[in-house]
Design a protein around this nucleic acid. Structure first.
Lengths: 389, 389
DNA sequence: AAACATATTTTAGATTCTAAAAAAAGCCCT
DNA sequence: AGGGCTTTTTTTAGAATCTAAAATATGTTT
């Protein structure tokens, strides 16, 4: 067994390079703490694989430095994500995470994971062949709204499907013919944020997704945290109201999700008003309706938003108190969620963070867009390029 | 910079050895996944340092195996802990964590950390010289009820003292003349549990201390978790009652500690009964009184205990949902806390853990005794023996 | 006593890193 | 134009740590 991850230093060079590019070898040596000779060896390897290219730089008195940059076209990845409403969105991205091709398709209803993997495989295959640079696509990442064991590529549980422990990654890989990894959608967003977003260069941070439900994932010590059981964080089911809490879809009561998620807000409004006001089918439309009412002065709606934000802030403060990350990134599904929740959220975080930890963790906001999943898949490729030798 | 901790494998051999002793080199190779030759090298080194000894074993057909054991007298550590009520307890322990000498002393009141460190140093020095094997004491560990940056040996904050960022470890070390590390008391209990208790052999577990307050610390991936700011987990200040919560000493409201800790229970009873029943000064005595009343059928007291247990269980379930450790160890300060809280606690954990995580984390109970701090200090020595070359 | 079985150590080599020396590549000055 | 200077990068030699396979050790069994 090796001393630890044998590619640890290569990965850290690549990470620093991405953060600081363009950057010379000497600076890389200083930034990573590695010896200059080691940097020469490692970057030579990275260049041989086409991941890094040289770019001349101005002299500063002595031998002019030779800058290094990530080669955006050094590899491509197809990222696919299965949305909760049953579409498969694929994006082909380059090494910078820039989208170079998109293909989305509605999935045919099925109750077997075998069949689902088949459909995913077929669509991804089309994305590979119809998009540019079919030959240069080195890996495929698939995100699922499921409980996933990333290490083994296994879907442990996906709502509406009976099977447990299904080898989803393997099946898709067999169909597409390109190494394929799978992960939970929330984890992919964390990866995207760590490599291309607000978590860039931060070793300990947590993302929180406010969506139909509420999800969370974190990087701890520069690594995506996978619990000992391989299951992602369930912030949405933190019991924020332990006594007399609202029922949640998970079967429990008092879950954060029942108060602060999009569907939680909709359902609370439904309860509060008797439901007549919401004779619309789609959750998003119902939410839009409530947001409009809040805008127009509906005090029930306004109160729900404020409370949702506060409770979410308390949940985040609880997490800060336990884990102490450097940053929290909250991503909202909808700009109106962000508008209405972020203020009360920040107040609650400030109020509920233990005094000595206050101010040490900053909170950033952003919006979920589907392209981020694909960029997360690209990040997965970056990490895998160094795990699979 | 090395690939990672250069002593990683030595430490893992020593850990396995402790868990499985007596054990042969060949078995160690199998258990650690290392090559037999590597085990020879590593154990030779450990024997040269006196940490490990050989013990012949019966043959099983071929060359008889040579068992290895930890040499309990290979090194000694003095563990000291400053209790919240102002005593310094020291225990000299051997490598098995067995106590070989004890010395406790009441501290003189002071408001300067400089002076506190001086008193601690003097008492530890006496413990070294008066105890057995003064020459063989290789390290000193001091636990404090403070916010501590273990890596740097700095006390960031200790209640009743003004100074921030005081180099406490350094000062004690200068007085005693033996390498000295300091840590938060709760972290020391986690170390004790990981090396000598219920966390033995478990890489991801969390301890919860129910005391005057409530503390927590966790091992993640086999390492004691230190947040990015070096501050320990503040489970006691998890906001378990975000709306209309009881006030807490930290200045916040709705903290778990205000409901489920010993002082939280006492204060709630005081509030509920108007306080006349509690004309006793000492917190422990007041608690004893309430526990006796509960035993005698006092429904207010009984209700407080049940609620305390439930809320603590919910807080633990919240942690399980976020972090997914293999085990939770709850240590109580008082057997009556354990008796009354553990039932409702377990029910709440079961109820509030996300279904897919249910049953994956087990919960164990134990009692705090002051000797555990010292054993934690011994664990710190074990780890430090391999960090300092 | 020879054959056999299992445990441990040694040996040779791979990998990865570092420190220090060497080489490269421009600028500046006379 | 050429020598000296500065800074960057590469090369070289060697240290540390691990592995696989061979050699050795030390019993039991026949």
């Amino acid at each position: 067994m090796r001393l630890s991850d044998p590619e640890f230093n290569r990965l850290s060079v690549l990470k620093k390079l991405r953060l600081e590019e363009p950057v010379s070898r000497t600076e890389l040596a200083r930034l990573t703490g590695l010896n200059g000779g080691t940097i020469t060896t490692i970057t030579r390897d990275l260049m041989a694989r086409g991941l890094v290219v040289e770019a001349p730089a101005a002299s500063q008195g002595g031998r002019p430095k030779m800058n290094l940059r990530i080669n955006p076209d050094g590899a491509f990845a197809v990222g696919a994500t299965l949305t909760p409403d049953g579409r498969l969105i694929t994006e082909t991205v380059n090494l910078r995470g820039e989208i170079v091709f998109s293909l989305s398709e509605r999935m045919v209803h099925t109750s077997r994971l075998e069949d689902l993997a088949g459909q995913v495989g077929a669509i991804v295959k089309r994305a590979v062949s119809e998009g540019p640079a079919a030959q240069a696509i080195s890996q495929v990442g698939v995100g699922l709204p499921a409980i996933v064991d990333t290490r083994r590529g296994v879907v442990e549980f996906l709502e509406m499907f009976e099977e447990k422990a299904f080898p989803f990654g393997e099946r898709v890989e067999a169909l597409v013919g390109i190494p394929t990894g799978i992960d939970n959608n929330v984890n992919l967003l964390a990866r995207a944020e760590h490599w291309f977003g607000e978590g860039t260069g931060i070793d300990d941070f947590t993302i929180v997704i406010v969506d139909l439900g509420i999800g969370a994932a974190s990087y701890q010590g520069g690594q995506l945290h996978l619990s000992s059981h391989g299951i992602e964080a369930e912030l949405g089911h933190m019991k924020i109201m332990p006594e007399n809490g609202r029922p949640c879809h998970c079967g429990g009561h008092g879950c954060l999700q029942a108060y602060s998620s999009m569907s939680g807000i909709v359902e609370q409004y439904w309860t509060a008003t008797g439901g007549e006001a919401l004779a619309i089918l789609d959750m998003q439309d119902r939410f839009t309706d409530i947001a409009t009412r809040a805008q127009a002065g509906d005090e029930v709606a306004q109160g729900l938003f404020v409370r949702a934000g506060r409770l979410l802030g308390t949940a985040i403060a609880n997490h800060i108190n336990m884990q102490g990350p450097e940053r929290i990134v909250v991503l909202f599904n909808d700009p109106r969620l962000r508008e209405r929740l972020s203020g009360p959220l920040l107040e609650a975080v400030e109020r509920d963070t233990f005094p000595f930890l206050r101010g040490l963790t900053d909170v950033k906001f952003g919006e979920v867009d589907e392209g981020r999943y694909a960029r997360g898949a690209a990040a997965m490729v970056l990490e895998r390029l160094y795990q699979a030798r």
